[in-house]
């Protein structure tokens, strides 16, 4: 049995709340980077929301973009330093709501960056308000106290289905509720980085991720909710892999 080694890129204790999926994702990112030997050429981008907790924790050059603009910020960086590996780690509010335009146009331009979108079904940083793109119908949040209603707020949207139509390199959705799914998510993230190494196009990996703090659930119950409810609206799997010319779910 091999001992679990902490990636060398992680240089500070985790700052996320207990049971937060962002922390697992941060670790997966660092593991993928080191397993691919890319740790000496990373430029990392986070949003000013919860992903910003990664900024000091990882030993990379790092920038926190304006809320929602991370795909555009990463685009600017990648174009100036095309030989570096540029990734973006942002929330679903950032990537799919306030910054949907920026995300879609980075995808349309097929900018060779790796984008990791944390779908925690709420706006985590500001107190778990409803996320127009990802909060499930009926779910209570601090801004949908009676449960999200389709009449006034529309419905959650599988944005990977939208991105699927934009001719990107890779789009996949993973989850974190058991080791098998964590491994699968890691494979997707790694694929996203490999695509950049081999100078391919835009890769996006969305991860269904618990926010126990704002969901008012224990970390275990939060994982259970994702497995039983969120995966029904947001199916897991590969949506686009241009290399395989494959489309999985969706």
């Amino acid at each position: 049995m091999t001992a679990l080694k902490k990636p060398r890129s992680i240089i500070q204790p985790v700052s996320f709340c207990a049971g937060c999926g962002h922390a697992i994702i941060q670790r997966l990112i660092a593991e993928c980077i080191e397993e691919l030997g890319l740790q000496d050429q990373i430029i990392a981008c986070c949003d000013i929301a919860c992903s910003e907790w990664s900024l000091d924790a990882l030993d990379y050059d790092f920038i926190a973009g304006p809320h929602g603009r991370i795909a555009a910020v990463a685009t600017g960086i990648k174009k100036v330093r095309p030989d570096k590996i540029v990734y973006a780690h942002a929330g679903d509010g950032s990537s799919y709501v306030i910054g949907l335009t920026e995300t879609c146009y980075a995808a349309i331009r097929d900018v060779p960056i790796t984008m990791i979108v944390v779908n925690n079904a709420c706006l985590g940083m500001t107190g778990g308000q409803m996320n127009l793109a990802t909060t499930l119908l009926g779910d209570k949040t601090s801004s949908s106290p009676y449960g999200r209603s389709k009449d006034s707020t529309g419905h959650p949207v599988d944005m990977l289905k939208l991105i699927q139509n934009l001719d990107v390199q890779f789009a996949a959705r993973g989850a974190l509720f058991d080791p098998r799914h964590i491994e699968e998510t890691k494979r997707y993230i790694k694929k996203g980085f490999e695509n950049q190494v081999s100078k391919k196009g835009f890769s996006v990996i969305e991860v269904l991720s618990p926010c126990p703090t704002n969901w008012n659930l224990s970390p275990v119950d939060a994982m259970k909710k994702i497995r039983e409810e969120n995966t029904k609206v947001f199916p897991l799997g590969i949506y686009v892999d241009r290399e395989e010319r494959g489309t999985g779910c969706g």
Partner: peptide, 22 residues
């Protein structure tokens, strides 16, 4: 690098990244 941006906010965000990269 020239980009016709999707809007001014996005263009300025690209610029922010590009300037940060030097």
């Amino acid at each position: 690098v020239f980009y016709q941006a999707e809007n001014e906010i996005a263009g300025m965000s690209m610029l922010f990244g590009a300037a940060a990269a030097g």
